[in-house]
Computed example of a mutant assay.
Amino acid sequence: MTLTETQLTTMLELQDGMNSKVNPDWVAANNNWHRAIQVEGVEAIEHHGWKWWKKQDCDMAQLRMELVDIWHFILSAAIQEKHGNVALAKMEMLSELNLHQKSVQFDNQYYMLAQMKLLEKLDLLVGLAAARRTNLALFESLLLDCGTNWTDLFKQYIGKNVLNVFRQDHGYKTGTYIKIWGGREDNEHLVEVLETVDLNADDVRDALYQSLKARYIVVAG
């Protein structure tokens, strides 16, 4: 499954909106998003397991969650590189994805993605991030190796982003937000709401937000 233009536009706009909530002038702040990718990549390596001197089990569920977090920072870096222009960021990312690259060039070497193991790809992700670079073909390959795809990533990203915005709008910083709704955490309600909306609709953000709000009002009054 490929990432559609509508999905990418939606995620870029959501990321811009969330970053603006944290800092309205976030683009000018010039945050080091690649450092954030680097740190999350190392956490992903930890979830995978890398210690050859002891038995370790790969926690694939946590690894997938790290990829969602990394995607937040990839989107932020793309927007910042285009000085806040979401449309240009989208065009650049789509052009890169449409190349369907089979290899990644780094440090005067070509790394053939089909010949690399998951842990080696995570190492490469971290190395690229340290050099303030990203590669969408590598990220897509990581998704596939983790048993997921762009559609699943879109669903997880949208849900997490809208919930984060909802929390901020309803007193998360001031401590007045109620996280338990009818005996269940808001994350559990989100999972149910995600099954009721059309994730490819143009108004998916508003639909998700309003569905969460309707449930929250019943609890919070």
Rank of each mutant, 00 (worst) to 15 (best):
P24K: 05
A78Y: 00
I217S: 10
L97M: 13
N108G: 00
Y111I: 03
T9I: 02
E96K: 04
L153T: 07
T2W: 10
D152R: 07
L63A: 15
T148D: 03
D206L: 14
Q38V: 02
E13G: 01
I180T: 13
L119M: 09
Y110A: 08
H100F: 13
Q80M: 15
M93D: 01
A114W: 00
H170C: 09
A220I: 01
E120L: 07
H47K: 15
D107N: 11
W52Q: 08
V126A: 10
G41S: 06
E13D: 06
R205T: 14
I79W: 08
K21S: 12
E46M: 07
Y177D: 04
N31F: 08
N32W: 02
P24M: 03
E120S: 14
T148P: 10
V42W: 07
L128F: 06
S20N: 13
L199W: 11
E66Q: 14
N85Y: 02
Q101C: 12
T151C: 04
N30E: 09
K173I: 01
T4I: 08
L163W: 13
V42E: 04
L199N: 07
S103T: 13
L94K: 03
V218I: 14
K102E: 15
E96Y: 00
W71L: 01
W26S: 06
D59C: 04
E92R: 03
Y111W: 15
L136K: 00
K160C: 08
L113Q: 10
N135I: 05
L119K: 04
G221I: 01
N135F: 01
V104F: 10
K54L: 06
